[in-house]
């Protein structure tokens, strides 16, 4: 019997960050936080209320916020900066590159509202290139947890991790299906949620749930498809991924990100390095999003369980 992941009660991943940040701060007095006029949206209010002297409102000045965080980290503190993924990456790429990564400062970048599922605000705010930008930076660790519980755990783990971290999460309420204190979560290690013998889906972030639904549906058709949660995109668990590439030629990736520079490229890179395989990618196809409801956007841009099932079927045909 394969495990049956069920929704324990839908929640937004950004709230997992808020809960995790408060908990981390209660455990470690070195933790401070900054927000760029989005403390409510990024769920930093509880932290600011409990630790007003450790919270700095930066206003709509993201570049300065990254620099101030690098300075706080220089003195031995552990700053978390919070804003939307768009303003946490592209807008401040050079600040992150020079003041944080090149200078090796212990700054944690908490990026909410990542991906298409930000929804109605549209493409100006739908960051789909961030994993690529952040994983390209030396010294950076990139984490994209799959649900509320895992975002909380990732936040706690990031607080203890030495060095810059990019923590990516989202806006909408989504299924919460991993255990509250999941002992299998560890930065840098893939999580095998479902085993399988006929193929594997590597997924990250919100797409992990959709990958599970795809696998269950394919089970009805007599196919046994593994689901591997690649929550850490850097440092990537090469051996954990390679063991699946060795086992099956049916490889699918699923991510709420551009088809370039994200999980699909990561898996392809490992594949070309050790075990060449075709890789079917479920991702946004080099286009900008638009306004709409999260589910409508996932449907229109090809990021649902149905699209993953189709990708698995294509992969089986290419075998």
């Amino acid at each position: 019997m394969r495990p049956r992941f069920i929704d324990l009660g839908a929640k937004d991943t950004r709230s997992g960050f808020g809960v995790g940040l408060l908990e981390a701060a209660q455990r470690d007095s070195r933790i401070v936080a900054l927000s760029a006029d989005l403390m409510g949206s990024v769920k930093m209010e509880a932290f600011a209320k409990h630790f007003p002297e450790r919270f700095f409102q930066a206003g709509v000045s993201e570049a300065n916020m990254i620099g101030v965080a690098a300075g706080l980290a220089t003195t031995g503190l552990i700053p978390f900066v919070g804003t939307f993924a768009n303003f946490a990456t592209g807008r401040v790429y050079d600040q992150i590159r020079q003041s944080v990564c090149y200078s090796k400062k212990n700054v944690k970048i908490a990026a909410s509202h990542a991906g298409l599922t930000l929804g109605e605000d549209g493409a100006t705010h739908q960051m789909l290139e961030d994993i690529g930008m952040m994983r390209g930076l030396p010294e950076m660790t990139v984490i994209s947890p799959c649900d509320f519980n895992q975002t909380r755990l990732a936040t706690l783990a990031a607080a203890q991790w030495e060095g810059p971290v990019y923590l990516r999460f989202g806006r909408p309420v989504v299924p919460n299906f991993t255990p509250a204190d999941d002992p299998s979560f560890e930065i840098g290690k893939v999580q095998v949620l479902l085993s399988g013998t006929d193929g594997v889906i590597f997924a990250t972030g919100h797409m992990v749930w959709h990958a599970l639904q795809a696998s269950y549906a394919l089970e009805e058709k007599g196919l046994s498809i593994a689901v591997v949660n690649v929550h850490t995109l850097k440092p990537v668990d090469e051996m954990g991924i390679l063991s699946w590439l060795e086992q099956t030629p049916v490889i699918v990736t699923a991510e709420e990100h551009q088809v370039h520079n994200g999980l699909g490229d990561i898996i392809s890179h490992i594949s070309t390095k050790y075990r060449p395989r075709f890789v079917e990618r479920v991702a946004v196809q080099d286009t900008f999003g638009e306004s709409g409801k999260p589910d409508e956007l996932l449907q229109k841009y090809g990021l649902t369980a149905h699209h993953i099932i189709a990708a698995v079927e294509r992969a089986i045909q290419r075998k």
Partner: peptide
């Protein structure tokens, strides 16, 4: 040297962060 500088405009923010870090500590 406590921070990389060269790409301009960034060091003042860093200095502010260090100043806040001193105050907190």
């Amino acid at each position: 040297v406590r921070i990389a500088t060269g790409s301009l405009g960034q060091g003042l923010s860093v200095a502010i962060g260090i100043a806040l870090g001193k105050k907190l500590q």
